[in-house]
Simulated assay, not measured.
Amino acid sequence: MMNCAVILLLTSSCFTSSALYNPNRAVTSKLKYLLEPPVYAEVVARRGQNATLPCILRTKPRHYKVKWTKLEPENMGRENIIMISNAQAFKPYGHLGARASLRRSHSMDASLQIRRLLLDDGGKYRCELVNGIEDESVVITLRIEGVVFPYQSEDGRYRLTFHEAKEVCAEQDGILASYHQLYRAWTEGLDWCNAGWLQDGTVHYPIIQPRPACGGQLLPGIRSYGAKDKNQDRFDAFCFTSQTSGSVSFVSGSFSFEQAGHACQRQGAELALVGHLYSAWRFQNYDQCDGGWLRDGSVRFPISNPRELCGGIPEAGVRSFGFPNKMKPLFGAYCYM
């Protein structure tokens, strides 16, 4: 009886092997060298911090190189190489390469480390293994944690070309926001009825509470004007900033714009930028129910704990008085040091 069982087991095994055999299997199967998918496809960090983008080899071919690039959707066809390496050495390229290195925690580790992150370091990165036979790659997203703030020219609504919008964001310690950054800000409560430029040259605005002047009866969402002429069309700007290395403080008083600057100088500081105030509000929960001058001539105040006498709006945010007469001594000063 036992012999019959053994014979049946062997017979079953033979039929099983025969059914699974595929003479082309060695040709069609792909040897995977990289960890796919990566354990973490998104890495989150703030400006000024360091970040590690994972890329682990499963096994190393005899001859190979690993190439790290940043994918730039707005520059199709242009390859932004950061680093090329092999088992012995690596060569950095460009401004990112100057702040990058390989982690090499073990012999199979090709993870990229970027030091002192900048606002525009966010985006998608590709780790590509090139061995001359079959190339493979993984894509990692680096997300800079920050805050989006709408910005309007002192001259009024819809006065900025695309290039001017880039400039004003840079002047206020920011960059033009990406669509993904604006979308995330919308999910976190940003509701703004003025259209603004984004970094890809498109124009949008986020709406949470639909109203007649902001898309009528359309559902909440990101309203889009699509791509516009960067040299001729004029809108506001959506800027993006992250944490700063300094701190914001408020000097109480009734100052003109010039007096506010002197008040900050007496503190060993200078008038804060709009981006500084938004960063303090977002990352330090800064709450001050007093209007104060900023360096661009606007008057604003940050509210983390909404209350009736501080703007009367139930959501947290940075409130604005716009651009008052700079000669009138009416407000305090927000200083940055």
Rank of each mutant, 00 (worst) to 15 (best):
A227G: 00
K70W: 01
Q172T: 04
F15H: 02
P38H: 06
A89G: 05
C239D: 03
S252K: 11
C335R: 04
L294Q: 07
R184P: 00
A237K: 02
S242I: 03
R62A: 15
N75F: 11
Q288R: 15
L273E: 13
F240V: 04
Q288W: 03
C239Q: 02
S256G: 02
S245H: 06
L182C: 05
S245K: 12
N50H: 04
P206I: 03
S18F: 09
N285C: 07
Q232C: 02
I140C: 10
R159A: 07
Q49H: 07
R25Q: 14
K67S: 14
S153Q: 05
K228N: 11
H163E: 10
I133F: 11
S224R: 04
I82W: 01
E74C: 00
G275D: 01
V148Y: 05
L218T: 07
R211F: 00
S254P: 00
K228M: 13
A51K: 04
T244I: 11
R157V: 12
G226P: 00
S13K: 05
P206F: 04
A177Y: 02
I56L: 14
A272L: 12
I313T: 09
Y151V: 09
I313N: 11
R126L: 13
C14A: 14
R234F: 02
V274L: 15
I144S: 04
N231D: 15
A41S: 15
N75I: 05
P23Y: 05
G123N: 08
L117N: 12
H63D: 14
G268Q: 04
I313S: 11
G132M: 12
R115Q: 15
S111R: 08
R115D: 14
R126N: 14
G156P: 00
N3L: 14
Q172E: 15
L8M: 12
T202W: 02
L190A: 10
N285S: 15
C14N: 07
I313P: 00
L112K: 10
L273G: 10
P314C: 02
G226Y: 00
Q217H: 02
K124S: 14
L112G: 10
V248S: 05
D173L: 11
G48V: 00
P54T: 07
Q49T: 03
V66Y: 06
G132C: 13
Y334M: 03
F323R: 02
N86G: 07
F301A: 02
G123T: 06
V130I: 15
G226D: 01
R58G: 15
Y21T: 05
A26Y: 10
A26F: 08
P324A: 11
A100G: 08
Y334W: 00
C264V: 09
V139A: 13
T161Q: 08
T161F: 07
Y179G: 01
Y336M: 12
R266D: 13
R115W: 02
L142W: 08
L219V: 09
T161A: 06
L198E: 04
E188I: 00
V274E: 12
F162L: 07
A263F: 00
R99S: 03
D121V: 09
C127Y: 05
S304I: 00
G332I: 04
V203P: 10
R58D: 03
A185W: 00
G201R: 03
S153V: 03
G215Y: 06
G261L: 03
N131C: 09
N305E: 13
